[in-house]
Design a protein around this nucleic acid. Structure first.
Length: 491
RNA sequence: CGGGGUGUAGCGUAGCCCGGUAUCGCGCCACAUUUGGGAUGUGGAGGUCGUAGGUUCGAAUCCUGCCACCCCGACCA
């Protein structure tokens, strides 16, 4: 299987795609631009969901669910928002099918046309704000801190497994606050939650920043984001958190009586991460042998492969490892024993490597004689023969070690691929030849930003939070610049 | 929506120019030998050749319509 698997640096796209399919994460579906997430891939997503959900709860949020279909009129209430999403919406126009009279099978019944079309949500701001209107009267009703786990649909022209699919799974938090400060704090807080998650669970370091006006979410006053760097030198927007100001409150007429007796519009935020994170996970750690999963998110952390010729041998091996397995499970380690006799050991080794299982334990007759286990780590592809009595502690340490090693390697790569340039020539050369993240001066205008994008395809990923102010000249126009901003080619 | 291309077994393909009932590899099934890094041998199953029509004694092959998908551009979490 792995023999025809493309190498990472030759054609990164092909490599990525093959990997996602062969590691059993997902497959393309017959439905345009939609993917099928397979059980193994979905179990990783579930793990991500569980961790994020707990973090949301810790920060005071609760879950709710809103409808998939949004009346067209809702969408048009916030001008910038429609503008941003209008071009990629799937629309429900009819509610009934019938058998075709000419025998062409099932057709849409023209009689069943909807009075008002329904939009399949590209995001839920509008329907949620239409609902919040009924929930909010007083400052005592605030804040509202609600999250929703859902699917959304954006009719993208070009799709790619996990990174950009027509339908994707995500969470979207929608909060309402009495004051501007509180809303801004909320947006920033959730950005921190995301950054903490990507670094400490996905082992994917990110740059936290603010989007330029041009890259801002449709309807937001300020968009905060986390940007990660992939192995091919392209940036990936891994999560966003928006301060929506009073835009949606005004569009949906959501007002409350404040302590001072005044009627005021509420302040809003929204924030989300999606199955795109799965794409980030794949592109951050995987190698030519397949997926590499950080232990904290791996559905299987340790796989045990017994090597046996007959049932007697298998039983002897199982007797040996069962106490260790029981103890590992008790410690909360996710262990799997693969004692199938339908596949050979070499096949299993390759298979679990492909699926990114962090630790593999092989046990055969040699080990029974010597009271040892062969323990292999996926991240460094090294093996060690360990005394069976010490295996438990060894494996526990190894899982921790792998988690931190992956983060360290990704951090090093981020650092090595971050460049600072001062001239257009350098900029062009760096973007085109090295890739990666490039700090450069920018005059602050949207026209310049667009022109740069047109010229070499790089965009401003963000203005990093805590970015030092320093006088300089815009790399393109030579006009005055207050600070360097972060450029990259992006997914 | 513009420009280009492709539809043949679960997957990847040959055959098409020059018409005669479909090739090869992977995978799948059975048996045997194997089993510490993706085994080998033998045998076997699996096909409306995208679809509808036309030309022809005969169409995967030639012609026409339709459908689907892919690539390049505009768009994008």
């Amino acid at each position: 299987m792995a023999k025809n698997f493309p190498k990472r640096n030759e054609d990164f796209s092909a490599w990525y795609n093959e990997l996602a399919i062969k590691a059993d994460l997902a497959q393309n579906s017959d439905v345009r631009g939609c993917m099928i997430i397979k059980p193994y891939g979905y179990s990783i997503w579930e793990k991500m969901q569980a961790v994020l959900d707990e973090k949301f709860k810790e920060t005071g949020h609760v879950n709710a669910y809103f409808p998939l279909l949004i009346p067209k009129s809702y969408l048009s209430k916030e001008a910038a928002h429609v503008e941003g999403f209008a071009k990629e919406c799937a629309v429900v126009t009819h509610y009934r099918l019938k058998n075709d009279e000419d025998g062409k099978g099932v057709v849409v019944d023209p009689e069943a046309k909807l009075e008002e079309e329904l939009i399949i949500r590209p995001t839920s701001e509008t329907i949620i704000w239409n609902t919040y209107k009924g929930w909010i009267q007083s400052y005592r009703d605030l804040p509202i801190l609600v999250n929703q786990w859902a699917n959304v649909m954006r009719w993208e022209m070009r799709t790619r497994l996990f990174l950009r699919t027509s339908e994707f799974l995500w969470q979207e938090g929608h909060t309402a606050h009495a004051t501007q400060e509180e809303a801004i704090d909320e947006a920033k807080k959730m950005l921190e939650v995301y950054a903490d998650f990507t670094e400490n669970y996905m082992a994917m370091p990110v740059i936290k920043g603010v989007k330029t006006a041009n890259e801002r979410f449709a309807g937001a006053e300020e968009t905060f984001c986390i940007e990660a760097l992939m192995q091919d030198g392209k940036a990936l927007q891994a999560g966003t958190s928006h301060f929506l100001g009073q835009n949606f409150a005004k569009a949906f007429d959501v007002k409350f009586s404040d302590k001072d007796g005044q009627l005021k519009h509420v302040w809003a935020t929204s924030w989300g991460v999606s199955t795109r994170l799965m794409g980030g996970l794949i592109m951050t750690h995987s190698d030519d042998e397949g997926l590499v999963l950080p232990p904290k998110l791996a559905p299987i952390q340790v796989v045990i492969v017994p090597i046996f010729n007959n049932e007697e041998q298998l039983n002897a091996i199982l007797d040996k490892i069962n106490p260790i397995v029981t103890e590992l499970k008790k410690q909360g380690v996710r262990v799997k024993i693969d004692d199938r006799d339908t596949q050979r050991p070499g096949w299993k080794f390759a298979e679990y490597e492909f699926k990114g299982v962090p630790v593999r334990v092989a046990v055969g007759s040699k080990d029974l004689e010597n009271n040892t286990l062969e323990i292999a780590r996926r991240d460094e592809k090294t093996k060690a023969v360990v005394n069976a009595n010490e295996a438990l502690a060894y494996i526990q340490n190894l899982l921790i070690e792998i988690q931190s090693n992956l983060l360290q390697k990704a951090k090093n790569r981020l650092q090595e691929n971050t460049h600072t340039v001062d001239s257009w020539e350098d900029f062009e050369k760096t973007i085109n030849e090295k890739g990666g993240l490039v700090y450069a001066h920018w005059d602050g205008s949207t026209e310049t930003e667009k022109l740069i994008k047109e010229k070499i395809g790089a965009t401003i990923r963000c203005i990093p939070i805590g970015n030092p102010l320093q006088e300089g000249k815009c790399i393109l126009t030579g006009k005055v610049s207050k600070q360097r901003v972060l450029f990259a080619k992006a997914y």
